[in-house]
Amino acid sequence: MAADRHGRARIPLALLIPAIAGMAFLVLPLAGLLIRTPWATLPRRLAEPGVLAALGLSLQTATIATLLCMLFGVPLAWLLARTNFPGRRLVRALVTVPLVLPPVVGGVALLLVFGRRGLIGSWLDDTFGITLPFTTAGVVLAEAFVAMPFLVIAVEGALRGADSRYEEAAATLGATRWSTFTRVTLPLVAPGIGAGAVLCWARALGEFGATITFAGNFPGRTQTMPLAVYLALETDLQAAIVLSLVLLTVSVAILAALRDKWITP
């Protein structure tokens, strides 16, 4: 078996030691949460109505945000990977800006555009009477803003790595660019889209800064789990730990399940 030939003895220490240090660095804070969890009062705290409301809202908004990101992000990634237009590099740099932008700044930027006095927001308010801040739709918008670059980068990478000869063959056989995209390209990069969507969902689920700035904080409407954790931290460290643990458990369970189904090639 291959596993035997590449056994432990063959792993270079120069890789093993930093790998273990890196793993410990990422895992230890989780262990810290587990150690300080008040197990005795856990059931009572979980039964509090606010907890389930926040968890439900988080799962719901992160999922809708991910679907929106796929709807707009996959075509954007295709445009960046498969076409050549002036300023493409600049566009790619710009769409990844939310990755480096502090989320709170992203939230302020969203307010300036989609807020009641914002560029688009004031038009939405005057014409349709729609205001996005302080609504669940606002939460979705904030999450999509910070999470979409993860999807775009993952899908663009997958497209660049995919063998474009299949697409060329489809084109020579007379397929239009659209049917090439739906019948050849999409199935080819499906694992990449899956990986991007999972990353995007995870980022949306943990979103805090842009959400609290743009959508505010109101239980049942815009208070997602990360916001509930932050406010619990103001008064009750143990409640904050319990909430963090719930978010952690649910997200790890979902990610693990999806990973087996979707991403493993």
Binding site: G115, R117, F134, I212, G216, N217, F218, P219, Y230, E234
Partner: peptide
């Protein structure tokens, strides 16, 4: 019934300043 319960007083003030 407020539209939002802000995390600190400066955030609540900022929402007024921004006109939200």
């Amino acid at each position: 019934t407020p539209v939002t319960l802000e995390q600190d007083v400066k955030q609540a003030l900022a929402k007024v300043k921004l006109g939200e």
